[in-house]
Amino acid sequence: MGEGALDDGRRAAVLSLVERTRRGGRASDQVFEQLLEAIRGLRLLPGQPLSETELARDLGVSRTPVREAIARLTDAGLVDVVPQVGTTVAKIRLAEVEEARFVRESLEIAAIKVAMPLAAADVAGLRRLIEDQRHALDAGDLDGLFELDEALHGRIFALSGHPGVWATVRRTKVHLDRMRRLVLPDRALISEVIAEHASIVDALESGDAIGGEDLVRAHARRVSALTPELTRRFPDHFA
C-alpha cells in the first residue's frame, strides 16, 4: 500500500469489525458500513492510502464488494481516487465540517423544542448517559465515550418523536465527527463537553426552550471554534 499504509494492527482492527457482522445482507453494504465507521473513528486516517487487494484480503471478501464500497465512499466525499496515482481516505474538508455543523445545530434546536417538557423517567435516562460518559472519561475509554455522546443526542431526537432524523444527521457529519475524534484525548475539554450535556438536560427538564436553544447552539459550535488549533496540530489531516 506504499508509504503511510496501514500497519498490521490497524488492518486487523478493521478486519475484526467486518468479520463480526458478515452474516446477511450484501457484502458490499457490509464493507461500506465498516469502512465508513473506520473513517469516522480515525481507524483509517485522513490521507491514508487504500488498496482494494489488501482490503479484500483483510476483510475476507472478494475485490468486487470492496470496489463497490469504495465507489460509494468516493461519492460521499470520504475517499479520493486519482487515476494513475491511487486511492486514499479523503482529508477532513472544513467546508463540509461547517455544513454538517449547520445541519446538526438547526435540527437539534428543533428537536429540543419539540422534546420539551420531558417526563421524569426520560430525564433520568439522559442523566444516566451523562454519568456513563463521566465513567468512560475516567477509564480512558475514548471509543465508548464517543458512542455515549452519540447516544445522548440520538435520545434527544427520539424524545422529539423523530428518531430517524438523527440517522440523517449522522450521515452528514462524518468529517465533523473526525474532528471531534481529534479532541477526545483532551480530558479538560471533554469534561466541559459533558458539563454542557448536563446543562442541556437541565434545560429540557425545566422546559427552558430559550436556554436550551442557546446551549445546543454553543455546544454544536464548540469543535468548529477549535479549527485553527486542530489544523495547526494535525496539518496532514486537513484538505
Rank of each mutant, 00 (worst) to 15 (best):
G2E: 10
G4L: 09
A5F: 10
G9Y: 13
V18K: 03
R20I: 00
R20A: 14
R20Y: 00
T21M: 09
G24N: 08
A27R: 05
V31N: 03
V31P: 02
F32H: 01
E37Q: 12
E37M: 07
E37F: 10
E37I: 04
A38R: 01
A38L: 08
I39T: 10
G47V: 00
L50K: 01
S51M: 07
L55P: 01
G60L: 01
P65D: 01
R67V: 14
E68F: 13
R72N: 05
A76Q: 09
A76M: 07
V79C: 06
V81Y: 03
Q84A: 14
G86N: 02
T88L: 09
T88Y: 10
A95P: 02
V97G: 06
E98H: 13
E99Q: 14
A100E: 06
R104H: 10
R104T: 11
R104Q: 10
E105R: 08
L107E: 02
I109R: 07
I109D: 00
K113P: 00
L118W: 05
A120T: 04
A120Y: 00
A121F: 05
D122N: 05
V123H: 03
L126S: 00
I130D: 10
D132M: 14
R134I: 08
R134W: 15
H135R: 15
D138V: 12
D141M: 13
L142V: 06
L142K: 12
D143R: 13
E147T: 06
E147W: 13
E150S: 12
A151P: 05
L152T: 06
I156A: 00
S160T: 08
V165R: 04
A167F: 11
V169C: 03
V169S: 09
R171H: 12
K173W: 08
D186C: 06
H197E: 03
D202S: 09
A203G: 13
G207N: 06
D208V: 10
I210H: 15
G212Q: 08
R221H: 11
T227P: 02
P228K: 03
P228A: 13
P228Q: 08
T231H: 03
R233N: 09
P235C: 05
H237F: 07
